[in-house]
């Protein structure tokens, strides 16, 4: 029973469902007229407290910061930067050593792959490319998400990064409360439910 509490209590379950099927394509055509649109916002100030990554090397950590902030930018509401999602990623990947060491390998390999792609295209590692080039490269490797016929060798790594970014952001106070506006897990004296006349039977 209440397996569907998963939808209400679990941080994430949907990711990656839509890619890859014909019905998914139709669904997206109807619901995503502007699938391509994503703009990088000006970066706000770095969080104040200094942080030494536990797992990533400093230059790798910088790349993780850029990636998470591209996926969930700071705009009218706070984003991955304020929620310190890169630190979350560092901590989780560090903690994987005990029971899921292959996760560490996936991140190292993925970051190296990203740098290779960036060097081929822009003659510099990802972290040193311009913000426009970084976004363009991410668009490129995420293409299979929007086009079921497309393939990209770095798409698996994109999925890994997006999953953990969304998970880390919407399970943080900044993401869940400040950006999303979750109001629950509270103590109420009354639960009014739906009070909209237009929804009543």
């Amino acid at each position: 029973m209440s397996e569907q509490m998963i939808g209400r209590r679990e941080t994430l379950k949907y990711l990656g469902m839509l890619a890859g099927t014909a019905s998914g394509r139709d669904f997206l055509a109807a619901w995503l007229p502007s699938a391509a649109g994503s703009r990088v916002q000006a970066a706000s100030e770095a969080p104040h407290t200094p942080y030494s990554p536990q797992f990533f090397k400093p230059e790798e950590f910088r790349t993780v910061e850029i990636l998470t902030e591209l996926i969930i930018p700071s705009d009218t509401t706070p984003g991955a930067k304020e929620a310190q999602v890169a630190r979350f990623v560092d901590f989780i990947v560090f903690s994987a050593a005990e029971f899921r060491p292959e996760m560490q390998r996936e991140w190292i390999d993925g970051l190296q792959q990203l740098d290779r792609l960036s060097r081929d295209k822009y003659a510099r590692p990802f972290a040193e490319a311009s913000p426009q080039d970084q976004e363009a490269l991410l668009m490129e490797i995420s293409l299979p998400e929007r086009n079921p016929d497309a393939e990209h060798p770095a798409f698996a790594f994109y999925g890994l990064v997006k999953d953990m970014t969304v998970d880390g952001f919407y399970s943080s106070r900044v993401g869940l409360i400040d950006a999303l506006g979750y109001k629950g897990l509270a103590v109420l004296s009354e639960f009014a439910g739906c009070t909209h006349p237009e929804h009543q039977v």
Partner: peptide, 24 residues
């Protein structure tokens, strides 16, 4: 059985492709 409304997680929008402000 059915479940609706605001939960403790990003909800259905997270299933969509893309990244950046429009995704958020």
């Amino acid at each position: 059985d059915f479940y609706t409304g605001c939960g403790m997680g990003p909800g259905p929008g997270a299933a969509f492709p893309g990244f950046g402000s429009s995704y958020k």
